[in-house]
Nucleic acid binder design. Structure first.
Lengths: 187, 187
DNA sequence: TTCAAATTAGAGTCAATACTCAAATATCAG
DNA sequence: CTGATATTTGAGTATTGACTCTAATTTGAA
């Protein structure tokens, strides 16, 4: 293979970018930090990427893809499966989970760049959850499944956000609790 | 009053800082942006604050204080009241709500500066919620009220996070739903 | 082994950043 | 009105950021 070295360097860069974005955020990540962690120099970076943005975007795509596994099961998955998949993502994909949460927040302010992407992704997730609820509860109106899906997806993100700050936080227990308990107390 | 002008300038700076932090984040906020929005020059800024960090911290404190109103009601508030207070905060305090959510994420990475502060604040909120649940459900074990409070506070933050990105998101409906529905579908 | 293409090195550019400081101006007590 | 003090000005410093470019080095096909 002709371009092997270049591709290996590219992988090292992406790995370093993922780690830095997880730790410092989409904007807080610097070329120097990426290069230091990847063990290369800026010149090499710019042989393989046109800009910092390009590397960051690649990592953002990785994170988004990792959240929604098996898009082929789209029309058949159960709500419990979707929740378990999210639990697994958050607990086993440390850096990518951090990137994902960083991303969710990048849509907050001026950052129009990512905002559309984040919103589209969120819509997709909500409708997947909504379909699963509808399949399990055919008597429920669509507006109602939609509403519950929106609440659930947002709540799960809140749980992920907290876990990312506190590694001892038990994502599984809290996420599953959302499915079975109303939080006021009556089970 | 002798130092009136200075105090007014200080207020303008804090207002501008709040707006910028809400839009660009704790780190993304620049002195220039603050000064432009406040209609002053950097020299004036440094007459009233020792550093950018100091102004940002002042705003962060405002946000934290605004989330937990009436600390005197501490031992008597109901869960519904706490949730309604949070709904009101998110829906009526636009910029401060954005600052609050920004803050929640600043504890994620290297940023040890804010991490402790965020965690302490979160602990306080959870125990306030937990007490309210315990008061309304004396039969419930403390570990259980604690667990539910943790889930609820995290879930509410997730809802706030989404609302901050999408102004049409109906915080009230979704937050109240957490209290009454298990999200799997059975009401 | 050779040589052209692929890859890396590392110094250098330009803009933006946080922060400083001496001089100019506004304010107000006496 | 006057002078001391509070306040603002705006140009300046040192640092760090993303990104560029040319020369050196490595690689692999012939």
């Amino acid at each position: 293979m002709r371009y092997k070295a270049g591709l290996e360097t590219r992988d090292k860069i992406l790995e370093a970018t993922r780690s830095r974005v997880a730790a410092a955020g989409l904007d807080g990540t610097t070329i120097k930090a990426i290069c230091d962690e990847a063990g290369i120099l800026p010149g090499s970076f710019y042989n393989l990427f046109d800009s910092k943005e390009e590397a960051v975007l690649a990592v953002v795509r990785q994170a988004i893809d990792a959240v929604d596994p098996d898009p082929d099961h789209q029309g058949t998955d159960t709500l419990a499966e979707l929740v378990e998949a999210y639990i697994a993502f958050i607990t086993t994909q440390g850096d990518l989970a951090r990137v994902y949460i960083r991303l969710a927040l990048s849509g907050v302010g001026d950052n129009a760049e990512f905002k559309g992407r984040v919103m589209r992704h969120h819509q997709g997730r909500v409708s997947r959850f909504s379909s699963a609820i509808g399949r399990e509860h055919p008597e429920m109106a669509e507006a109602e499944t939609q509403r519950r899906a929106e609440t659930l997806v947002s709540a799960l993100n809140g749980i992920a956000l907290h876990r990312v700050m506190d590694p001892d936080f038990d994502v599984a227990v809290h996420a599953r609790g959302l499915l079975t308990d109303a939080l006021t107390g009556v089970s």
